[in-house]
Design a protein around this nucleic acid. Structure first.
Lengths: 215, 215
DNA sequence: ACTCATGTCACGGAAAACCGTGATTAATAA
DNA sequence: TTATTAATCACGGTTTTCCGTGACATGAGT
């Protein structure tokens, strides 16, 4: 088992215990290299230009320069730097700001090591990683539009069944036959689905179904 | 940073060097526990019932009882056991058999540690994990149907544009207005899209668009 | 020179989706 | 008890999608 790439990491946190803990954890994982650490944003800004890490793991709540301000200052100069925010609490305003600043991931301090590794791997591979709770908040508060409404509606079992079949490219007629009900009934379900989901056609329904993981 | 869960792992490989290597690597990662190892399938079948691992990492090519046979024998008795196949070569027949046997993941021996960890985390969380090359093979050979064709077709720029708008819930009329062409033209594009993608309606197009990351 | 893909447009008909409105039954929640 | 929901069905009308078929111009590649 060869190592293809080593991920160079820089960590910023004003809590020394946390800093030490995460450093030990990540140091014991080959494939990862801790290039350096800092206890505040100012120090981080000095060190990062020379060290050129792949990933910056930063606390959000820090004195003077917090994680968001740090991200803002780094984002333009280092567009390829992946920034993983680690925070002890999750309020939507902070998360919203962090996302706007351009972080690539956001996890909570009470999440396990397994998820930390997953987050690191994910953002290193160019994707964003947000922990489950944060995803929920994003849906609930930032996307305060159609999306939010989409996620609030409750579909009945029958409606889910119909939606599932729609998303599997079945026509109304086919669905009616499959469920042993009339075409009119299926059309009513479809209408109700569109009303609940907030869309005007099948395309919206399919997108919703995929987004919700119903297919 | 607390550890939520520890992942219990059992490893089978007839190459002792590989076995030692992977054991050392994984032992250095907290969150993972190597419960035991075996150099052949028979030995593994003896040890696994007592050790009850979460994840079995097994080589595919082994004498007497190979990884696929091992999977077949374990799958029924231990439905919750996650099995990660590790193989040095990737031919579609083997992969096909492995998937039918019920493995949860398939990676290659030349992949890095980072991906190994990703695979372990992924299958531990109940999802399947297949390395990129394997995914490609799956698409090319096993799903020798619509899916394969879907991934082979080339859409023209204009078609992609139309597909993008379709997936954004625009009607033919709206698309025609937006692109300054006639409705007939948009319908032709849509027809060609459906022909190329291999579907009979908008639902299939949207699913394709999402799958291809066009929206 | 010829073929092929692309992009444009047209026509007609069948099928399906879309929309509004209303109704019945059963079960459940307030 | 009353109100709400889920699930069922109906009807009529409009709009859109779906399908086949054909045509023309352009440009790139063989």
């Amino acid at each position: 088992m060869e190592v293809n790439k080593e991920i160079k990491i820089f960590i910023v946190d004003d809590h020394k215990m946390f800093l030490d803990g995460i450093t030990v954890i990540l140091n014991n994982i080959s494939g990862l290299i801790i290039l350096g650490v800092a206890e505040n944003g100012k120090e981080a800004l000095k060190l990062i230009p020379n060290l050129k890490p792949d990933i910056l793991i930063t606390d959000i709540d820090m004195p003077i320069i917090d994680g968001i301000e740090l991200t803002n200052q780094l984002r333009l100069s280092y567009p390829n730097l992946k920034i993983l925010a680690v925070s002890s609490h999750n309020n939507s305003t902070t998360i919203s700001k962090a996302i706007k600043a351009g972080i690539n991931g956001y996890i909570l301090k009470n999440t396990g090591k397994v998820e930390l590794l997953k987050a690191i791997n994910t953002i290193f591979n160019g994707e964003n990683y947000f922990t489950k709770e944060v995803k929920q908040l994003i849906n609930d508060s930032i996307f305060n539009n159609k999306e939010a409404k989409k996620n609030k509606v409750k579909l009945s079992d029958r409606e889910k069944e119909v939606l599932y079949l729609i998303a599997h490219e079945k026509s109304t007629k086919e669905i009616a036959e499959k469920l042993y009900v009339s075409i009119n009934t299926v059309e009513t379900h479809r209408k109700n689905l569109m009303r609940k989901v907030g869309t005007k056609n099948m395309v919206g329904l399919v997108k919703y179904a995929i987004q919700q993981g119903l297919i």
